[in-house]
Amino acid sequence: MLFVTIALLSGIAVGFLLKEKKTLPLIAGRVSTATIFILLFLLGLSIGKNSEVLNNLSTVGVQAAVLAAGGALGSAVFSFFIHKYFFVVETGEK
């Protein structure tokens, strides 16, 4: 947890201080894509060896679908009220 925060904050600081260097976000983007590939490959590898996950894939799928719908719908409903009561966008609508 501490390392996560340190990694995140030092990343923001480096990005902010070197924001004039146009290539930096590009390099950072490439590196993050590469690390995502490595991490998901490794996660897949350990899942392939985990019979508990493989045997319950349909249950897991249903649980995931329910949670995905809950998160997306809950957010959309909340944003409806925020938009209605607080937001004035350039077009002049309230």
């Binding site: 995140l8 923001i12 600081a13 983007g29």
Partner: peptide, 18 residues
């Protein structure tokens, strides 16, 4: 795995900061 994860979080920070 955790070292690669920290690299990922660090680069996410850079993209946001920049």
């Amino acid at each position: 795995v955790s070292s690669v994860l920290y690299v990922l979080i660090f680069t996410v920070g850079i993209e946001v900061g920049a």
